[in-house]
Nucleic acid binder design. Structure first.
Lengths: 162, 162
DNA sequence: ACCTGAACACCGTTCAAGT
DNA sequence: ACCTGAACACCGTTCAAGT
């Protein structure tokens, strides 16, 4: 708050005329950023493809704002209107893919955890566990997409013989 | 640090005779906790099953220590001897499952991100995105296992026709 | 080797007062 | 409505000094 106030050439406590607390400010910031995620209305033709697009767009937006990603983890995601909008689109896409009820919520959770988690762990330099070289952006994005597709295959083919 | 010092009935700066900084202390704590993860030496008979067991054990350990999970995210995992041990076991298991080279590192990353991410998002109460009821522990564990299996199927069947 | 008091340079936030 | 100075109750950390 003090750093922000300095950048605005204002006393620190002046911020509290515009925002209730640091937490409230951060929450607004996080939800606003989700507005950049492209989530077109559910396409019944290929819901799995739609889901891949939405999650990939989310990953790209998060990856482009590395400073904010840790805050999503601290704040346990977001609950503003933008988050609601994305959740709605994903739920609809999953339903069109034949995943409803409890499985729908479970799949939503898995996809979000994977996407935000991946963004979090690829946004900062450094290894996750053990000695690893930091891979470049293109390789990370490819890793993300590969894992995402495995999840989507599992989610949409749930219970089917292989 | 001050809270810890109080619990030890000691002045805050006394801690700095035993630890270089708060970060160093946290890093040690995190790596020590990973010592509780059961990671038996790689079993060539069924490496995919071994991977599922290691990741499930990791999830259980993290879930049992909710206060520490956010710190793994802040500290970007861990780099101590215990982290090295787990990384080694996972790499070996993946190699025995026929996943080597670049794919090995990618798979390692995907599995760790998924596991730590899932622990992080299920350790705190509250929705991730949108309006969700907080599910109970058993349901969360089942969700975790389901997603983990999808990932393992994708990782080990990579490139094979379905 | 391990502790202490005192201090430094920070935080987020509140309160009363100004325009 | 929006800002201010002053203050409160915190942080992690350092330094010099004690045993």
């Amino acid at each position: 708050m003090r750093a922000l106030a300095t950048r605005l050439h204002v006393a620190p406590n002046a911020l509290y005329s515009h925002v209730a607390s640091k937490t409230a400010l951060v929450d607004q910031l996080l939800d606003d950023l989700l507005g950049e995620v492209e989530a077109p209305p559910a396409d019944a033709d290929n819901p799995a493809h739609g889901l891949e697009n939405v999650m990939a767009s989310t990953y790209r937006v998060l990856f482009a704002h590395p400073e904010l990603v840790p805050l999503y983890l601290t704040r346990q995601g977001s609950r503003g209107p933008q988050a609601e909008r994305l959740g709605g689109v994903m739920t609809a896409l999953l339903a069109e893919a034949g995943v409803g009820g409890r499985a729908n919520r479970a799949a939503l959770r898995v996809l979000l955890v994977y996407t935000i988690g991946f963004a979090a762990f690829t946004t900062q330099a450094g290894p996750v566990i053990g000695p690893q070289q930091p891979p470049d952006k293109a390789e990370l994005a490819a890793n993300f997409t590969a894992g995402l597709r495995w999840l989507l295959v599992g989610i949409t083919h749930q219970g089917q013989a292989c």
